[in-house]
Design a protein around this nucleic acid. Sequence first.
DNA 1: TATCGGATGAGAATGATTATAAACCATCCA
DNA 2: TGGATGGTTTATAATCATTCTCATCCGATA
Lengths: 142, 142
Amino acid sequence: MRLTHEQFRELAAEHGLAVTHQRQVVFEAVIASHGHYSPEDIYATVRRRIPSISLATVYNNLRLFIECGLLREVTPHASTLRVDGNLKPHHHLVCSRCKSVRDIEGEFIDFKRLSRHLPDGFDLTQPLVEVFGLCRRCAAKK
Amino acid sequence: MRLTHEQFRELAAEHGLAVTHQRQVVFEAVIASHGHYSPEDIYATVRRRIPSISLATVYNNLRLFIECGLLREVTPHASTLRVDGNLKPHHHLVCSRCKSVRDIEGEFIDFKRLSRHLPDGFDLTQPLVEVFGLCRRCAAKK
DNA sequence: TATCGGATGAGAATGATTATAAACCATCCA
DNA sequence: TGGATGGTTTATAATCATTCTCATCCGATA
């Protein structure tokens, strides 16, 4: 699906973003590509339409889009490795904004239902579930 | 809780790891610290007991422990930003080994139960759940 | 004791991302 | 028209986490 200029204009206006050519092309590239792509991937795609675009522009605009909620980040963790010595089965509650992680107990996953939606061969023998939201502090700020 | 040398020795033997002083101290530092710490954090802790230890050693051993299953990685995503243009509510299925991400549909979360375990003030208005396991290809390799 | 292989330490190299600063461009007002 | 303004883009430098390299070390074994 290709967004019309009008549609992007509206979205941008809603979120207080200026409409530039680069911005529009980056956004379209993400929407058009089903999947979960990296800034480099998107840079490569966008360059076919704007050969002079800078990688920094792609980064800038992706960040903006994520902050506005126009896009979702698929890697909503702290940018550095974190390690967990707790080997008992438990799940994580992650704040999408500040990236803090808390342990969470409880049986709230319906594995029977879940397994119906699993692709063939996916191994869930040691399931780890992470639930993302906003922690109290970040929710208050907003 | 502090592991005895004996306990670590056993664990290491089970996983075919040589027992070294550094290895033991790094492992103890992770186990003793409840929380989700970065290699730098652990380096700082371990240095109090082994001032000459190298950051690379901490990284090496954390990697080893994770590969053996002695520790769990709390950031099991690709190391670069990934972006998702699909704004419809959906969840993710992530392979802990190759880091691939697939969308998954279906209502398999019992939000009523989940909310009982949420800390006060945690905002779940746009819940995103990620379920980790091994994709078919990685499960086969193992 | 001599040898061997894996482990360690120091620092260089890499790769992703961010910061900086100059150039650019549309818009607003004189 | 024309100049000031403010946000955007570009190129590049800087930063940060992580990995690599390689010389050295250590411990087990012959």
